[in-house]
Amino acid sequence: MSSRDQIFSAIRKNKPAAVPGVTPDLSVVIGYPDLLSQFSTVLTAIGGSCREVASAEDAKQFIASLDKGTFVIDTTAEHPSGLAQLSPAALASVDTAIIRGGVAVAENGSIWVTENEMVNRLLPFIAQQLILIINEKDLVPTMHQAYERISINETGFGVFIAGPSKTADIEQSLVIGAHGPCGMVAVIVRES
């Protein structure tokens, strides 16, 4: 018998009597009177920063005003062809990545980003600094509504990103910038 068959037969023999499933009743889940202020409060608390702008044009201007270093990859604009195939060694010198985000979650400051938007899966992690552009209308209160809005298998890879990378593995002292970005900015566009 293969290991697979062995495992299945042991599970079938030993599993308990059927227990019904449960569908969470979302009416008891927390809501926020002001999604944007909740989102930006949480994101700031976890080491990110947040900027609200009136339009896509204003977003461009704001981002232009930031110090982004010399090697910038902006997947929302024209980007190097072959970005998807760019080697890790080549990406290692990216100073700033600019990527469009999808659903943003007020309760935890996270933003859903899929492979389509990042183009290269390594980009949002290897860049020294990450800028995500989102629409205010994509704010939802909690993860429950977020999963209602997305299909997790729409692309081969998707990730909720909440702030810059961090660690507290040395004596529980928080250090921003572990292996991923040392800084993360969310630009929230009010009009769609």
């Binding site: 969470p24 993860m143 298998n153 998707g158 909720f160 909440a162 990378s165």
Partner: peptide, 25 residues
């Protein structure tokens, strides 16, 4: 996943969620 991701980091370190929740398909 919403139920478990809401519980995991809060229970572990008191963070609202981990920095990265990566979904591989």
């Amino acid at each position: 996943l919403s139920v478990f991701l809401r519980l995991l980091a809060r229970s572990a370190t008191g963070q609202p969620v981990t920095t990265y929740s990566s979904h591989f398909h």
